[in-house]
Nucleic acid binder design. Structure first.
Length: 272
DNA sequence: AACGCGCCCTGTCCGC
DNA sequence: TGCGGACAGGGCGCGT
């Protein structure tokens, strides 16, 4: 569920409300979401003050006033919520609670605990940041830049888009939607993608991600109960989860297959 | 060395 | 109605 748009939405919500919050205590309910042991984690953060919230790829980045950072990878089911948020009391899988000086708490909730919380000091974060791929909504993500990258590898283009060390922030859902809009089959080897296709893919990726952010990052996953934001991006999905239904462009049945242990959906007529 | 695959974990859904 | 099994996607570690 959480890809770039979800991380962006969380960061925007948190930014003004978390700034100035000083950590006075940390309770770890599930240590497997931490990069270190709980005692070390506590020593790293207690007494330090959040400066706000941002994003890098799919990571929510919480800068500290002294230049360090708490970096949160949300995995599949991670959420970051302040205790005074409307539905904070409904969280059922709180893994870590950060008590703040003003009495509020920052809660990290993660049902499946695929997420990871890690503290970086300034230098270490610069290194980590440099390892991550290009930001798909950034100025550097041009058609030429994307094409130069795709030409250098033979991996299927869907796998290329999922690799956080190439393009940072794209997950399976938005990758497949962008490939459909660009008319490129997910299994196509990256190096065969033409310049024109790379240009369409860049535009499609940006369009899909921006629309998703406009919908507050709401994807299909929370449609079944009204526990969170209602409405959402799901009606906008044109191929993901639509096996057997007619393609919106040509009517051909959408096909599903498995690529690298993960579902791929595409229109066999529109995507070459 | 780039790449593919299995696994981590839980909730939901489907078929018997 | 209950239950087992398949399935979901992110990322890491390992084998090739």
């Amino acid at each position: 569920m959480p890809e770039l748009p979800e991380a962006e939405t969380i960061a925007r919500d948190l930014d003004p409300r978390l700034a100035g919050g000083r950590v006075t205590d940390i309770t770890v309910h599930h240590h497997d979401v931490l990069a270190t042991d709980p005692a070390t984690f506590g020593r790293q953060l207690i007494g330090r003050t959040f400066a706000g919230a941002g994003r890098r790829g799919k990571n929510v980045v919480l800068p500290l006033e002294d230049g360090g950072r708490l970096v949160v990878n949300l995995g599949m089911t991670g959420r970051l919520v302040l205790s005074d948020a409307p539905r904070a009391g409904e969280l059922r899988h709180v893994a870590v609670r950060f008590t703040l000086e003003d009495g509020r708490s920052l809660l990290y909730d993660d049902t499946r605990r695929f997420g990871l919380l890690e503290v970086f000091e300034a230098d270490a974060w610069r290194e980590r940041d440099a390892e991550l791929g290009i930001e798909p909504l950034g100025d550097l993500f041009t058609a030429g830049a994307l094409h130069a990258m795709t030409r250098r590898t033979r991996v299927p283009i869907r796998n290329f888009l999922l690799d956080q060390y190439r393009v940072a922030g794209v997950g399976n859902i938005y990758a497949l939607e962008a490939l459909f809009r660009a008319g490129v089959r997910p299994t196509r080897r990256s190096h065969t993608v033409t310049r024109a296709e790379a240009a369409r893919l860049r535009d499609a990726l940006q369009d899909v991600l921006r629309r998703a952010i406009g919908n507050r990052g709401t994807t299909f996953s929370d449609y079944r109960d009204g526990s969170g934001e209602r409405g959402g991006f799901e009606p906008l999905l044109q191929v993901y989860g639509r096996e057997g239904t007619p393609c919106a462009a040509c009517g051909t049945q959408i096909r599903r297959r498995v690529l690298s242990n993960r579902s791929v959906f595409y229109c066999p007529a529109c995507q070459r």
